[in-house]
Each structure stands twice: as C-alpha cells, then as structure tokens.
Write a protein that binds this DNA or RNA. Structure first.
Lengths: 197, 197
DNA sequence: TATACATATTAACAGTTGTTCATAAAAGGG
DNA sequence: CCCTTTTATGAACAACTGTTAATATGTATA
C-alpha cells in the first residue's frame, strides 16, 4: 500500500478520536510509521490532510443516478420503500469506516464552516428532498394520509439521525448497542402506522 | 461582579466558540482582563474551569419536584401538554446562554466521556422517562392509540433535538432561523395527528 | 553501473500550550 | 495605621504545535 493512502487512513482514525486540533501531525506520522517531516512529501499541510479525509464524509447511499431514477417506482412500495431506506441507513450507521467519518463530522460540525454547509446541503437537504418526493408519490397513490411531504421527511429522518448519534456515542465507550439496533425497525413501524391509510 | 463569575462567563463563551482545546487559558484571561496566572487564584487548573461551566449544562426544565408531581394531571391535557412541552423546548433552544451550553455539549460530546454519560442520563433518559410516562397516561385516558410509550417518547423527542441542532448551526453563521421556528409547532401537529384517537 | 527522482531522516525554527513561582498591589479588619 | 488575606503581575519552565531546510536513502530508468 502507498504511504499516501496509509496517511489518510491513520489520519481519519486520529481525527475521529481527537478532532482536528487533537490529532497532531506527529501523532499521525507516528501511526503511519514515519517522521512528521515526511508527511509533507505527500500533503502541503495538515489542513490538506483533513480536507482530503473530510471530502469523503458525505457520500450518501441513494446518490447514484440509477437509484434516483427508480425512485418513483420504488416509492410506490410504501412501507417497503421506507424499510429498505432504513436498512441502508442501518448499514451506514454500523459500518466502521463511516462511523469514523460521522464522528469527525460531529466533532468539527460546530467549528468548521465548510463542514456545516456540507452537512446542510449534502446530508440534510439531500435526504429531505429525496424522502419528501417519495412521500409525495405515496400520497398520490393513496397509500398515506395527505400532509406536507417536507414535514413527513423531517419526522422520518430526525429519529434516524438521533439513533445514529446514540449508536456512535455508545460505541466510543464500547457499550452494547443491541437495544438500539431494534429501534430502527420500531421507528419504521411506528412511522408507517402514523401515516398509512 | 466578582472575578470568578466573570471568568466563568467568558470561559463559557470561549468554550462554546473554540471547544476545550481551542479555548486557551490566555484567551480566557485576556477576555476577563487579567493575566493568565491570576486565573489560578480562582481555579486550580483549566479542567476545573471547564467542569464548573459544564456542570450547568444539564439543567432541564420540568426538573423541579412540583412539576413532576403534577405530571399525571397535566398529561391528561393531551395535545395541550405536548404543546406546552414544545414551548419550553423552544425557549431553551433560543435562549442565548443555553445555546452556548448546548454548543459546548455538542463539541465535547465525542471527546469527553463524563459529558457523554451526563447526556445519556441527564438529557436523553430523563426526557424520555418523563414523556413516556405522559404517553402512558394518555393511553389510559383513551386520548391516544396504544403502543410502546418509550417508542413514542423517542419519536417525539428526536425531531426536537434535530431541530435544536439545526438552529444552533444556523446561528453560528448568523443565518436566519425563521423557517425553523415554525417547525416546532408543525412537529406537534404532525405528531398529535399520528397518535390521537 | 550511473543518473534521476521520490521519499525518508535529523535538526531546527518560532509560536503556543498549561502551569508555577516570587513578588507586588489592593482590600478589609483590628 | 499596621497586619493579614486576597488577588494581581511578570517571568520563566518544559512540553508540544505546524512547518521548513539540508541531507541521506532507496528505487526505477537510461
């Protein structure tokens, strides 16, 4: 494996553990197995290392063109669509690498303006738009009660985000997340019960 | 005003802006108007300053004995109870001092184990317990559909937390939160529509 | 084998960090 | 007014920060 990739991997882990300020270039270099000055052969400065890691944070599922094009078809599945969304979300939540990236996001969200903007547009708005479109279709199909699709999307997504945060916090202290794992399904059940006709 | 109180106020603002690591003792001292060595007449070290600030984070509304005792009465109000809860939550969200404390919590949540434990017990579990009791009463009264009160409490609280986070993020960049302000009420409306009989 | 290039090392830099110490100024009580 | 206590100052400390320079090592190509 090339040194540059190794730097990115180790840097990601350290940023996830200590944040941007806490992860010093010497700590990163030590984990890679080189001296700190050797880092500067691969990146111009610490900020570039962070940006390189941070740029991979917002790679959501459902982002490729095929999936989006099939949305109107898949949304007609009603609860089935929501369940498959949850499955994806759960996979992302428990994936080790994505967990690290989520940690970085949460740590730097209040310190880094670029990250805030990305969070709003790439995470919040993107997911909201997709889901409100799905709910709109479900309404047209007479599957769910009428209402503001945007509100529904928000109500559906917020508990998922909160669950993900809780899972992340528990995992830092190496506590069990078994109780939370089932909550994802409970959420779909409750939510579908709330909107179905 | 006593120097000690002034230190706590300025430290809170700096912790909210830069986090624990980013808020140096020299920055704090400068804001207070003294030299850094003078801080050590009032606190033994930086950690103690932070703990002193952090200890005021989890002072929830609905925490005094009177309110709790009246819970079973107030819960019978159904939607009225939820609306009053939202009003409290909204006040807390837009309060300047509590906003600062919320920022500190979010920044340090992934770095500080004590804060994580407090968040889980003082914020998450406390609110969840209170609300699930309320929902249980509403079920007995035949006001809402039956179901797991814990799940309902979670579904009710998570969107509030997510809203609060969004408000906080927008305010850091001094963006308008007008659109979000009305979402609190939309949340109660949607939620009540989802569970009422 | 010699040349070029990418990548490593060692050493140093200027700045910042939290904390301590001896000492000076201010405040309050007898 | 003196004495004691509190609170301030300035200087210094060791450790750590990001970054740079000169130099050495290894590797692939000619």
């Amino acid at each position: 494996m090339h040194t540059k990739d190794k730097i990115l991997i180790e840097a990601m882990e350290l940023f996830a553990q200590f944040g941007y300020k806490g992860a010093s270039v010497r700590k990163i270099a030590a984990k890679v197995g080189i001296r700190e000055s050797a880092l500067y052969n691969h990146f111009t400065n610490k900020e570039e290392i962070f940006q390189s890691v941070a740029s991979t944070i917002f790679t959501t599922p459902f982002s490729d063109a095929k999936e989006v094009a099939m949305l109107s078809e898949r949304a007609k599945g009603g609860k089935k669509f929501l369940s498959s969304f949850i499955v994806q979300y759960k996979l992302v939540t428990f994936d080790r690498k994505k967990e690290h990236l989520f940690r970085i996001m949460m740590i730097e969200l209040l310190q880094n303006q670029r990250l805030r903007e990305s969070f709003m547009s790439e995470y919040h708005e993107k997911n909201n738009k997709l889901l409100s479109q799905a709910f709109f279709i479900m309404m047209q199909e007479g599957l769910i009660r009428s209402g503001d699709p945007m509100v529904m999307a928000n109500e559906f997504l917020a508990p998922l985000f909160y669950l993900r945060l809780q899972v992340t916090l528990l995992r830092i202290d190496e506590h069990s997340t078994a109780a939370l794992s089932t909550q994802f399904e409970k959420h779909v059940d409750f939510f579908w019960e709330s909107i179905m006709l």
